[in-house]
């Protein structure tokens, strides 16, 4: 019988929500466990040996401590494929939202009341440190994207990626446009789709949890929102909630 692919599922600085997405696949978990060997999954209390090698490691979270970096390097070395799992791993996410606004050392002192450890790292995405083979965006990621990845791994490949903005699925669902029809601060045009416009379909604006879409015209979205009467700082705060590194001048 063919060897089961070995999986590692781990988290760095994050809320564990992405790993919970795995546990939320109730219907698929029996099949997943039948097809894969989940060798390392601290949140689910599997512990692997030190010399374990993995076919794929799904890792959530931003890198913000020396321990995070050590875990990331160790899993990179031990895994054939490293998958950035969720928005924090891809863009820094919520932990990184204030990177541009405040000094880490000062922040540390005010929260912990002592001098910061010298290995403090401003929360950063994986690609700042290691090569990433595939990524699944979302805060949290869509279950369907996770299942598609696992199915593709079994077939010896990686899933096709979606590269359209939230507006595409939003229009196709015949939603009322929150940006144009209701004058709300919706980031749909510049945010990666694939969520089936989950929020706008229920009347909630797109807050950008899936990060920038590849062809985002960031400067024009900013201009449009300013023209529609929103405050520049409010727009920046909203945009940096999940992705701190926007280039607000980017048009191409």
């Amino acid at each position: 019988m063919k060897r089961k692919p070995k999986l590692a599922i781990a988290g760095l600085t994050a809320c564990s929500g992405c790993q919970l997405t795995f546990l939320n696949c109730e219907r698929e978990i029996p099949t997943i466990l039948d097809r894969f060997q989940v060798s390392f999954f601290p949140l689910g209390e599997s512990s692997g040996g030190d010399d374990e090698r993995f076919d794929a490691a799904l890792i959530e979270g931003a890198v913000s401590t020396a321990q995070d970096l050590a875990t990331l390097f160790a899993l990179r070395r031990a895994s054939r494929l490293l998958i950035a799992f969720g928005t924090c791993a891809l863009f820094g996410g919520v932990a990184a939202m204030n990177n541009q606004l405040c000094d880490r050392a000062e922040l540390f002192r005010s929260v912990y009341g002592r001098e910061p450890e010298k290995d403090l790292i401003p929360p950063a995405p994986f690609t700042n440190f290691v090569a990433v083979d595939f990524s699944i965006t979302g805060c949290p990621p869509e279950k369907t994207d996770l299942v598609a990845l696992l199915g593709s791994l079994l077939a010896g490949t990686l899933p096709p990626t979606t590269c359209y903005p939230v507006c595409m699925e939003c229009r196709s669902r015949e939603n009322s446009c929150l940006l144009l029809d209701r004058d709300e601060l919706c980031l749909g045009p510049i945010i990666q789709g694939g969520c089936n416009a989950r929020c706008p379909a229920t009347g909630i604006v797109c807050e950008g949890c899936r990060g920038p879409v590849s062809q985002a015209n960031v400067a024009q979205e900013m201009e449009l929102l300013l023209e529609r009467g929103f405050d520049r700082e409010d727009i920046r705060r909203r945009m940096s909630r999940f992705t701190p590194g926007w280039n607000y001048e980017q048009r191409d």
Partner: peptide, 13 residues
């Protein structure tokens, strides 16, 4: 080309 958001609405609709 400068102002197009590439939101895709024109084509979807």
């Amino acid at each position: 080309a400068r102002i197009c958001l590439s939101c895709g609405a024109c084509s979807a609709c």
